[in-house]
Write a protein that binds this DNA or RNA. Sequence first.
DNA 1: GATAAAGTGGAAGCAGCGTTCCGCTTCAAC
DNA 2: GTTGAAGCGGAACGCTGCTTCCACTTTATC
Lengths: 222, 222
Amino acid sequence: MATRSSTPLTERPQRADAQRNRRRVLEAAEQLFAEAGNGATIEGIAKRAGVGVGTVCRHFPTKQALLDEVLTDSFREIVADADEALASADPATAFEQFVHRLAAQQARRRLLAEQMATDLELPPAAVELKKAMRARITELLERAQAAGAVRSDISPADTAMLFAGVAQITAVSGADATLRERYVAVMLDGLRPAAATPLPGKPLQYRDVDRLLARRSRSASR
Amino acid sequence: MATRSSTPLTERPQRADAQRNRRRVLEAAEQLFAEAGNGATIEGIAKRAGVGVGTVCRHFPTKQALLDEVLTDSFREIVADADEALASADPATAFEQFVHRLAAQQARRRLLAEQMATDLELPPAAVELKKAMRARITELLERAQAAGAVRSDISPADTAMLFAGVAQITAVSGADATLRERYVAVMLDGLRPAAATPLPGKPLQYRDVDRLLARRSRSASR
DNA sequence: GATAAAGTGGAAGCAGCGTTCCGCTTCAAC
DNA sequence: GTTGAAGCGGAACGCTGCTTCCACTTTATC
């Protein structure tokens, strides 16, 4: 959706078979990235999509471009999930529902979990979506806190980190959805006001997250 | 300690400088694996140790061998931490103390967190240590549960997974110790009987973990 | 100190993977 | 149908990182 549209106008639309192939590649990439994270190979993606490597590399000039596209889709879906949850009347339910969905997204796309925690370079479209996602998380959390359903000494960034951790470990170990939900539930119990014991340290701010990631990606690129 | 001792007896002890270099390589490897996980390169390790790549590769014939050695050390330390905690009189304190230490180990050695969740192939020495570690975790948890300090519907394997997740996300994102302790504390709150809401699914057993990992490492070796 | 074994550094070899290139095929406009 | 452009596959290329090899240096023994 991003790559193709560098055609201003007065230009031929993409050929039908090309469009079909592009979609196939994207689907294959999503699957393989989900299974193997960044370890998925172009050749593997091409094979699963039933095309040659050349085709993959024309539609997406570099592996990073392909990765960006998949990643952007993920953010889009998370934002959509958040909007759906926000429509719910009950703030507590909204928060819990969203958190389960967030973890599911991250588990399904191992890639996403990896990237959310490590890489800084994001395509412009994804940057916007990430901002939107953060705003939604903040709203969901603050509403739940105002309703007394969630302890007040944690921040949106804390929330994101905590559930990213749970999602990542279940995704990486190849566990199933039930196990993931189990751990999300434990995590949610830890966030209830009733359970709250004083926490060490201060709530994490989003700008701290960005600083951490910037520092890390500068030192060891991997 | 494992590689060198294939010398039965009536054989020269290793030369002094060789021993020194071996230790240096091991230290450098531990540092770099901790920082960059499996992404650390032999050349980087050699450079940090102040030796040539040839030297690294003679002491440790493959990268995996080096990795095994570092990993085995980690397990050893965890078992030692557990023994120390077990010596504590109060089961609740013992459990909490150990869990903080476990997360610290896993965060310090990003490698460990990765391997604990993904790879199956372990050197024989590490296999024994892993068993010992599991036994310790079980004992710490069961004592804490018997004392009413931890909810009874979670298993030792659940515990390991949960804290591995927290440790991994803080390690990968390069967060500091305070933040990690903060999240471990939230997690511990989630484990208190007072907070407990019914959990979906069944407690994870260690044999389930092994099955998961076996399946995963068979499908995508990465 | 002389000597032989042990150890060392780094260049060369090799393998995996992303990217490029080009002759051939397929589509779609006329 | 014909034709030209768009798209395709996969071999070839280059880069990066693990491993091997060997001429040279260091250690320890006599």
